[in-house]
Amino acid sequence: MIGTLLAGKGIFFLTLLLLGIGMAGIIVCENYMKKLICMNIMQVAVIFFFLCLGQKNGGTIPVALDSVINAADYINPLPHGLMLTAIVVSLGTTGVGLALLYRIKDRYGSIEERDIIRRGKDKQ
């Protein structure tokens, strides 16, 4: 029973776990760099989830081959296309995040949340 569930849906649980780790990390971690890393983990989880949707047993990559004529023999290419975009977006977000981190380090001399809050109060 559990075996079939895991075989069929197990991957979903794994991505869910990854998503949970990412979100928890964003909330719990005190170091801004770690938060950024966790944010990436969270994004990757959704990308995995999407890719799982595109998979099917016995399908091949969605590149037109002469030997495979039936559409059912290919895996669904759309989630891959979408996730390509999502990866680019997440790359952009990470880039902005890193730039902001660089600025924070520059201005506050630290990327620990505690230091930043303290210094923010000092400046007032």
């Binding site: 959704v46 999502a86 977000t93 995040g97 506050y108």
Partner: peptide, 23 residues
């Protein structure tokens, strides 16, 4: 200075929002 920190925090929360939407 504070804008940078506010932006960073917003970015984390905003990305969670975007991720949830994608999900």
């Amino acid at each position: 200075n504070k804008g940078v920190v506010a932006a960073y925090r917003y970015m984390l929360v905003g990305t969670i929002a975007a991720t949830l939407y994608l999900l």
